[in-house]
Amino acid sequence: MRARSVIFNAALVFAAIPLLVHAQGFTPTKPVEFVTHTGVGAGGDVLARYLANVMEKEKLLPVRMHVANKTGGGGQTAMAYLVEKAGDTHTISLYTGIWISNPLMLPEAKTTMKDLTSLVRLLLEPGLIVVKSDSPFRTFNDFIDEAKRNPGTLKQSGSLVGGRDWMLRVLLMKQTGANWAFIPFPVMGERLGALLGGHTNILLVDPQETGEHIRAGTLRVIVQIADNRLPPYPNVPTMKEAGFDVPNIPVVRGVVAPPGIPREAVAYWEGVFAKLVRTPAWRKYLEDNVLEDGFQRSAEQSKFFDEYAETMRGVMREGGIKIVR
């Protein structure tokens, strides 16, 4: 009986795969709007346009996909736009971590991920901690030791309070008892400039942004924030290997849809992106930009949203940020 049901279920699953991909009747019939909360030319926008380009080249969609920039409100404008479009199967949107974190900290950020439909998670950005080439810190442990000896005197060039680099600092300070300052600079150029000018001591970067500085020897990587050592940096330990047991808080990018869309549409989009992440173009994109494949389907991603929010709550409590939701 049991054996039969397994076979039966397996048969069902196999039968369902093509159906899922072709989504039991749902296929887009008019151009699809691909929303991003970033302005033209910013990271999210570039990725959105790249994805739309791949979709077209690989003929993954029967219709055209055009990028719509709904900027403002730290992602809230785009999120509210999606809520307004409830039930619309022809609108999807790229998200990043601030869609999860901002509603936790900002009372005005009323729309949360729970109000939207999870589609797929696409990628995770690993990180590197770098120092200037003439820095006395050969390893990350050197830095932590110094930060314990002289608390508060060392400085980190940072993005913003609540960002990934800030969260990692909170976790590391808690774990090691060390203490150093976090100085926010809004754009990468200023962060890097402060480090290269010797005004700050460490900086967390995306591998792609500073690859050339590392190659030129003006910057040195002391530790990497990734599950496994990244191919371009085989000799640099990961955080865990260096002896720091902190979660790798990822910078995440994925796709969500307006609330209340039918299950077939969710399955359709899952299918399209599952095909996309297997294309050579996408593999090359990940490799060129030193990104990790973070593909997850809808249900898995929903669970990820909850876990991510929980981790953030913990870090924010630790770092003294008021949690509003």
Binding site: T71, G72, G74, T77, A80, P107, L160, P184, P186
Partner: peptide, 20 residues
């Protein structure tokens, strides 16, 4: 808008449109 240093919002009058 959002203050970089404290992750709190200032003078937004409760409107998400003013967060940036």
């Amino acid at each position: 808008g959002i203050d970089l240093f404290t992750a709190t919002s200032r003078f937004t009058f409760g409107s998400p449109d003013l967060l940036d």
